[in-house]
């Protein structure tokens, strides 16, 4: 968290709504991203993100200046998102088919060698993960939270975080296996 963030939060704690609005502006994409990756539906992610910020506002008195604000509010969002996905109705309705609201990726180590089909498969594999595994995976792989932070956010033990994370990664690795092989062949062909 930057020094400006600390100042904004200090002001927000004293009831400065405009300062808090600026905080929301700074972290909205990240919070929304966490929510969307877990709930997979824009409308729900929107609600989760809003609610996360509202709860953060309500609890600002307990937030200690100097600590990073982003992980804190993301943990709130993740917990709300997981609770939503756990709900019976949400499970009945299921997740949207296909890539839904997950658009084309930025270039990255994997994106460089995977085609759009592989990305779609990865996206679907992430969506197919059990909600608890998906949340743990997103919080670690995307948000880069520590196991302790994830455990605290989701109310589970660090050991459970470790096992869920491994299971999630293993599943995703298996889903991607054919595409990793194809990408390797393409690279070989390009090199020869």
């Amino acid at each position: 968290m930057g020094p400006e963030d600390s100042f904004l939060i200090a002001r927000a704690r004293h009831g400065d709504v405009r300062a808090f609005e600026e905080i929301v502006r700074l972290y909205q994409r990240r919070v929304y991203g966490v929510a969307l990756r877990i709930v997979r539906v824009h409308d729900v992610a929107d609600d989760v993100a809003q609610e996360a910020f509202v709860r953060a506002w309500r609890s600002l008195d307990r937030f200690e200046l100097g600590r990073p604000f982003g992980p804190w509010v993301c943990r709130i969002a993740a917990n709300l998102a997981v609770n939503h996905v756990r709900s019976p109705r949400a499970r009945e309705e299921g997740l949207p088919e296909g890539r839904a609201e997950m658009p084309a990726p930025d270039p990255g180590p994997l994106a460089a060698v995977l085609d759009s089909e592989a990305r779609r498969v990865l996206d679907e594999a992430v969506a197919a993960l059990p909600a608890e595994q998906r949340a743990v995976f997103i919080l670690r792989a995307v948000e880069e939270m520590s196991y302790a932070d994830i455990a605290g956010a989701l109310g589970i033990s660090p050991g459970t975080v470790m096992s869920r994370l491994f299971r999630a990664r293993e599943r995703l690795a298996r889903a991607l296996a054919p595409y990793l092989g194809r990408a390797a062949e393409r690279r070989k062909a390009g090199a020869s």
Partner: peptide
């Protein structure tokens, strides 16, 4: 690679 792949799936509103 799995982690990198997940990161490379950004969210757009």
């Amino acid at each position: 690679a799995v982690d990198d792949g997940a990161v490379s799936l950004p969210t757009v509103a």
